Amino acid sequence: MEIAVIGSGDFVIGFRLAGIQKTIAVEGEDNLREAVHKVLEDTSVGILVLSSSDMNTLPLRLRTRLEESVRPTVIAVGEEEGGLSMRERIKRSVGVDLWK
């Protein structure tokens, strides 16, 4: 299971430095949408990381699909995100509440 990160070059650089290999730097909403669709089709990806601001620019239907996705589990990083907390997302993807 791999972690994928999609976002601006500034956003993904920290993840690259942390050792995450599947990082996709994109500029513009169309490129973002295409990259998200490619990652959703990639069965080796278990976790997808996006910035909250990028998540909010996606069309409602795609955003809803990402918020409800179990595999890959989608985590929006940055400003406060509506919907599920990271704890709830991990619990849903792993099947166990790791904070208990």
Rank of each mutant, 00 (worst) to 15 (best):
E80H: 08
S44N: 06
E79S: 13
L48I: 11
I6F: 04
G82L: 08
A4Q: 04
H37F: 12
W99S: 13
R65D: 05
E41H: 07
P72C: 12
S51D: 05
F15G: 04
T64S: 08
D54G: 03
P72Q: 09
F15I: 07
V5S: 02
S53G: 11
D10I: 14
V39G: 00
I3H: 04
I90Y: 01
V70M: 10
M86C: 13
S69I: 02
R65C: 00
L84Y: 01
R65I: 06
V5H: 01
V70F: 06
K100W: 08
E41Y: 06
L48M: 10
K91C: 09
K38D: 15
E34I: 13
K38T: 11
I3P: 03
A76L: 05
L40R: 04
D10C: 12
W99R: 11
E68I: 07
E68K: 09
I20L: 12
I24P: 00
K91T: 13
L84T: 05
L58I: 03
V96Q: 05
L98G: 09
L17R: 03
R87L: 11
I90E: 03
E67P: 02
L66K: 00
D97H: 01
D54T: 11
I13R: 10
R87E: 13
R87W: 04
P59T: 09
S93P: 04
W99E: 14
G46S: 08
A76E: 05
V77P: 06
S44G: 04
T23C: 14
G14A: 08
E80P: 06
V26I: 11
E29D: 15
P59G: 07
T73C: 15
P72D: 12
E2H: 08
P72E: 09
F11M: 11
V45M: 02
E88A: 09
K22E: 13
G95L: 04
L66Q: 00
D42S: 06
T64L: 10
L17E: 05
V12Q: 02
P59Q: 06
R63E: 02
P72A: 10
L58D: 03
I75P: 01
E79V: 10
D30F: 10
A76G: 12
G19M: 09
A76T: 09
E88W: 00
R61Y: 06
A25L: 05
G83T: 03
I24R: 03
D42G: 06
S8I: 12
E34Y: 07
V74T: 14
G83Q: 00
E34T: 11
E67L: 13
K91P: 04
F11Y: 12
E79M: 06
L32E: 02
